[in-house]
Simulated assay, not measured.
Amino acid sequence: MRLDQFVSQSTGMPRSEAVKVIRWGQVRVNGENITKTSTHIDPASEVLLDEEKIVLPGAIYLMLHKPAGVVSATEDTEHRTVLDLIDHPHRHTLHVVGRLDKDTTGLLLLTNDGDWSHRISAPKHHVPKTYLATLAWELSEAGAQALRAGVQLHGEKGLTKPAEVEILPEKQARVTISEGKYHQVKRMFAAVGNRVEALHRERIGGLVLDAELSSGEWRALLTQEHV
């Protein structure tokens, strides 16, 4: 892996800071001072920063209760990001597993394990995701049946895959989908003549948002939750 990536992930410092300490000659790899940030090294190498050994952290898996108004990104020049909510020494090594729209709330996962996030978010794996939608109007049984059968989204050629739909009181509906098309849930309800006023993700695969987490709070996943 690249040396600047190694230093960033080992220390939790932003990549830009890692670049600086390498260029300033503060990093030694297997006894050799290296100032080229793009140098590729074996992660098992002995790396010293200011003569102190640094090592890569283990895999990190976090669950966040995402609030509205925060973007699912690690960097944004205009808006607060979900990473700003994470008080973790290695937060700069994390990436978002399956984004949520800025105004959508609920379960969001972050990790530094690329293979794990790919298994969850890659479309070919069809991992189901469950959302609670607050609608402009009560969802009719005919609308629910259409969603269960698959609907035509604006700008798409084929139908959506069949969804699980539960009609709830107070203009709400719970829907489970196994695809990840752009703004899919909102577009699905639009296709049956309704409008999503608020959207909250409750579940990804077997992972359910911890009821103990208030909006904006996070916790590490338990071992049995990420295997």
Rank of each mutant, 00 (worst) to 15 (best):
L3Q: 08
F6E: 15
Q9F: 08
V19T: 09
I22Y: 07
V29Q: 08
N30P: 05
G31I: 03
T35P: 01
T37F: 07
T37P: 03
T39P: 06
H40Q: 12
L49I: 08
V55R: 15
A59G: 14
Y61N: 01
L62Q: 08
M63D: 05
K66S: 07
A68P: 04
V70L: 06
E75V: 00
E75I: 01
E75A: 06
E75W: 05
D76R: 04
E78M: 06
T81V: 04
L83R: 01
L83D: 00
P89W: 02
V96M: 01
R99P: 02
R99E: 04
L100S: 00
D101Q: 04
K102E: 04
T105D: 02
L107H: 00
L110K: 00
D113H: 00
H118S: 04
I120H: 00
P123Q: 10
P123R: 02
K129M: 03
T130L: 08
Y131T: 02
A133Y: 02
A136Y: 04
W137T: 07
Q145T: 08
L147A: 08
R148N: 05
G150V: 11
G150Q: 12
L153G: 11
G155K: 14
K157V: 14
L159M: 13
T160E: 15
P162V: 08
P162E: 11
E164W: 13
V165N: 11
V165I: 13
E166D: 13
A173G: 07
R174S: 15
T176A: 12
T176M: 14
G180E: 14
K186M: 13
K186L: 14
R187I: 08
N194T: 13
E202R: 10
R203G: 10
L207S: 10
V208T: 15
E212C: 10
S214L: 12
E225Y: 10
